[in-house]
Amino acid sequence: MIWVAAAAATRLGGGGAPDIPVARIVLAFLLCIAVAGLAILLLRQRGAPLAWRRIGEARGAIEIGEVRRLTLHADIGVVRHAGREYLLLVQAGAASVLHERDVDEGPAA
């Protein structure tokens, strides 16, 4: 029974090392690098598609001033909206306003 399984494995998979020359692997790698380089040059020359350009350009009414990580599940951040500045504590599943002030005011005491 063991001999039959060994014979079937040799017949199906060949049972030996793959016969792919190293030069062929290196040439395929170099071809991939060349295609990626051409894609980068093309995107730089003609510009990114319109949908890609919109990422990060949106200027809305909310401006995030600064964010700091407190713990693995909690962040604290400063958010500005409509002339007001809010100090927010954002936790997993909850957010709370710790302090708010007008932006025109000096530093809070």
Rank of each mutant, 00 (worst) to 15 (best):
G15V: 05
I62K: 07
G15C: 03
D104V: 15
I25T: 07
L88G: 01
T71L: 00
D75F: 15
V4P: 00
A36D: 07
L27V: 04
E57W: 05
G77C: 08
R68A: 06
L27T: 05
L87G: 01
L70A: 04
W52V: 14
A94G: 04
G60M: 00
G14L: 04
G37F: 06
V4C: 07
L89S: 05
R54T: 10
I40M: 06
H73T: 14
L72N: 06
R68T: 12
P107I: 11
Q91S: 11
R53C: 01
A109Q: 08
G47H: 12
A28I: 08
R84I: 02
Y86W: 05
A7C: 12
I2C: 02
E63S: 13
R69G: 03
V79C: 03
A34L: 13
W3P: 02
R24E: 10
E100I: 01
I25Y: 00
A5W: 06
L43D: 12
V4Q: 06
I76M: 08
Y86F: 15
L42H: 15
F29G: 15
E66P: 03
I62R: 08
I40P: 00
I55Q: 02
I76C: 01
A61F: 03
V22H: 01
M1F: 12
V97C: 10
T10S: 03
D19Y: 02
I62F: 01
L87W: 11
L30G: 05
I33C: 09
E100M: 03
A58C: 05
G93R: 10
Q45F: 10
G14I: 09
G93L: 08
A74Q: 13
D19Q: 15
Q45A: 14
G47S: 07
P107Y: 04
G60Q: 05
G106N: 11
P18L: 11
